[in-house]
């Protein structure tokens, strides 16, 4: 393990991004992945360890116009306890309810979950379905600048994002879904939360008479990153969710995923699950 040469605890976004600008920084937020990952040798510390816990700009959940801004340091427990999240971002709330254990939910942050970029990341699947975008902050020339990146572009591969080493993930912004939008998050495992998803699905839509509108579908653990399923969404958009449509949706979904075999599931089983569970989730969603 490489030694940590400096430990920094910035108290503002400006200070944090200044430290990042100097380079070679490992960012510490909730720490729930960092410590075991470094001890197992899967992640190596940079010379500077920066604990961002005291950066106020990274805190809080707020409704800003048609967008919910969730600070990077917001913990999973805070999301679960937020009436706004529960009321308007139901599939995100459900994913938080299926997230690890109470002890981990109390420490783990949404920013950490996003930056880990696990293909099975629990909050990533609903956030992707909800068209979330991340806010990245940097201080290239004396002033803090931010850029917004759609989550789908942020995630590049397992553990890889487009965050530059000098950038800090400050927040995630989630556009409020249209009124009447409802959905379901499904995580495959035998335990309620303390499982790494073998597959996960976030699906939601709005009922418009007999047909579905604003269909959003995302999958976890079936590709190098969590993925949206645009062709599946297109099959369902504007249609009544009858058996033929559901079958067509499954067919489309199976064309959009590229699962692998690992210790948790085979690629074959992941495909079967996506087919079976997508139907089930859509049926539930349509009954809401």
């Amino acid at each position: 393990m490489a030694d940590i040469e400096r430990y920094k605890t910035p108290t503002s976004l400006a200070e944090a991004t200044e430290i990042l600008r100097a380079g070679n920084v490992t960012v510490l937020a909730g720490g729930t992945d960092l410590l075991p990952q470094t001890q197992a040798g899967r992640v190596h510390f940079q010379p500077t360890l920066m604990n961002v816990r005291r950066v106020p700009e990274l805190q809080g959940i707020a409704e800003e116009g048609a967008v919910v801004r969730i600070g990077a340091l917001v913990t999973i427990t805070e999301l679960l306890e937020s009436a706004l999240v529960r009321g308007r971002l139901g599939i995100l709330w459900q994913a938080c309810d299926h997230f690890a254990s109470d002890q981990i939910r109390n420490a783990a942050t949404v920013g950490g979950n996003l930056c880990n970029a696990s293909p099975a990341g629990d909050t990533l699947v609903p956030l992707l379905a909800l068209d979330a975008r991340v806010v990245l902050a940097a201080k290239p020339d004396g002033a803090v600048q931010t850029r917004r990146v759609p989550l789908a572009e942020f995630l590049l591969g397992p553990g890889r994002t487009c965050r530059a080493p000098t950038e800090l993930l400050a927040a995630v912004e989630v556009p409020l879904p249209p009124a009447g939008f409802a959905g379901e998050f499904y995580k495959h495992g035998t335990r309620p939360g303390l499982d790494i998803a073998a597959i996960s699905i976030a699906a939601g839509a709005r009922r418009d008479g007999a047909v579905l509108r604003d269909v959003r579908i995302a999958f976890g653990a079936v590709a190098p990153t969590v993925i949206r399923a645009p062709r599946t969404e297109a099959v369902l958009e504007g249609r009544a969710p009858d058996a033929a449509t559901l079958a067509a949706a499954v067919h489309a979904a199976l064309g959009e995923i590229q699962p692998i075999s690992d210790v948790r599931a085979s690629d074959w089983y992941r495909r079967e699950l996506i087919g079976n569970i997508l139907k089930r989730v859509l049926t539930h969603a349509c009954q809401m």
Binding site: G31, P36, L49, Q103
Partner: peptide, 22 residues
Amino acid sequence: EGECGACTILVDGSTVNSCLMF
């Protein structure tokens, strides 16, 4: 690794796995 809870402590009134905390 935060999987077993044997190291649970309270920090500012919330429980965490102390093996995962710096």
